[in-house]
Design a protein around this nucleic acid. Sequence first.
DNA 1: GGATGAAATCGAAACGTTTCGATAGGCTTC
DNA 2: GAAGCCTATCGAAACGTTTCGATTTCATCC
Lengths: 332, 332
Amino acid sequence: MGATIKDVAALAGVAVSTASYALNGIGRVSTKTRDKVLDAARQLNYQKNGIASDLKRSRTNTIALLLSDLSGPYYSSLIKGVQEVSLNNGYDLIACSSIGGDSSTAVKFIKEKRVDGAIILAHNIPDRTIMDSAREGFPIVMLDRRLEHESVCYVEADHDKGGLLATNYLIENGHRRIAFVSGPASSKHNKDRYNGFTRAMNDHGLTIEPRWNLIGNFTEEGGYRAVKLMIAQGDLPEAVFFANDEMALGGITALQEAGIRVPEDISVIGFDDIVQARFLNPGLTTVRQPDYEVGALAVHLIFQILKGESVAQHYTLDTELVIRGTVRSIQN
Amino acid sequence: MGATIKDVAALAGVAVSTASYALNGIGRVSTKTRDKVLDAARQLNYQKNGIASDLKRSRTNTIALLLSDLSGPYYSSLIKGVQEVSLNNGYDLIACSSIGGDSSTAVKFIKEKRVDGAIILAHNIPDRTIMDSAREGFPIVMLDRRLEHESVCYVEADHDKGGLLATNYLIENGHRRIAFVSGPASSKHNKDRYNGFTRAMNDHGLTIEPRWNLIGNFTEEGGYRAVKLMIAQGDLPEAVFFANDEMALGGITALQEAGIRVPEDISVIGFDDIVQARFLNPGLTTVRQPDYEVGALAVHLIFQILKGESVAQHYTLDTELVIRGTVRSIQN
DNA sequence: GGATGAAATCGAAACGTTTCGATAGGCTTC
DNA sequence: GAAGCCTATCGAAACGTTTCGATTTCATCC
């Protein structure tokens, strides 16, 4: 269909190699022939076949961001970090989804080496697959997920510390009777956040009431149900720490329905700082992860490895408290 | 670095072509040699080079979604539509951004034919570039943007009708003095929405007051300022139609600050149904575009064209009114 | 046991580039 | 005017597959 470099060379009356040099702006050609070639290319509307070029060069100048779903949930600032750093380094970035697991686009791209490196933010790609695809010279960075392998590294936010921060904040504001609504037991993040919570409680000599250890599964629905249950039990805590914002959203709905005011009657704190958190009234106090920085660091590592420099295998970034309006101060 | 099919063939003691047949599961090989080959592949941890394969086959089995920015704003359901239909048809999908215009990843992918087809949802790729890349056998579908070219088609929502719907709804609820806050004059969407508005007004014999034709530039800030201006003029309308939700958000803030209640004192309607619309209190009444359907249709067209079937060049999909709480009914 | 035909295997070309090493001119320089 | 050097150009190999057509193998049947 389209014209190839051969056609261009023929029309310009030069060898294919010369045409290639001219088109790629490599100095070896005289300006006269360069113009001839570029003219011919224009006439034929020549566009180079990127695939052939990649094959020959054996590099693509592209890195991939593997997401579990292209249509969300949205790691907006993380992606921004990835995007900006890639662009600044002159690399192309593509995103693809791992829906379908081992037969997904995402897996195809790392297995078949269709890119020069990959950042994985997806939990449905088996460890095995990743380890099979990883090799020296093909950098893979995992986000929010650990994988011990010599040519894979990972960066994560400090969820433990985030849990600590949130809990300390509640305690500083005079709360002592604090409930915790967990995500799924299988989630490492949930575990870490909970660890931070217990540590803060213990540090202050506060006891964790088993009846205030609720399960919410990281969903809005789950948070709603957990709070309903808590209300049914009668004895309310002074504050609730939801292990993520979505559960907090559901929980707040349940509280409102029961006529319990936030923060006047009960304080609420979340985790993640999702977009909706800001739009709640009052705004949800929560813990922000340094998403942009995580993304930026991930690509940065890719480039370091690509350049042959060695990097650590594991990076942990700090979390940050975002104070809005759902925690009130209790005067003692 | 990695093993090639040659290595596999050598280890298995067969010809390269036989190895290829075996690995691709094409029937021509005996089960004995197939096993031999697969074994060898496993031993060497062979992964095929997808780029070489694509080159030889001269198709990639992949389509690209070109966005102006990977990190948002989020066309969540549109992307979902694209994604689901691609997957169902056994095609891979990648997303890339057109940041950087003609030197962006997005443009590189369509120019260099690194995919089999593309869906373009980006306004910073010049028409010229798209037309140069389009050719028979390389389907391109434009979203929310018109381009007349024989091998490009486009699908869009009916913004004109959306404007009509919204305005009619206000009128049905007894409003007659209605303000319109526009987006940028350059926006075709804005123009279409405004057309619908004027049509509805004229249909009902209502007059459009020039002083209530405000400019908000499609931004939250712009909406805020437009309403401030309106308030300063003294004479308030009964309802305001914001040409998009973001401006409505800003406008509502301005109203609140002035102590004007929505919808008790003034009704508000938006356009787009962005996520925040639902989280406002009361929820923002607005017009929803059929995003999922737009995405799904776009990919569908790609496949039709890829199969050699002919399709129309232009599709228009209906918009839909989303009734929430910002429009009150006025008793006459 | 030799002819027959299907099934299995092979060799080589091709996809469209890039790039290495070789060649051919055109200058200077003595 | 021959020797020597750049510089511009060329030819060919290579990247790792797939696939066509040819060749071999092997069981089958008279």
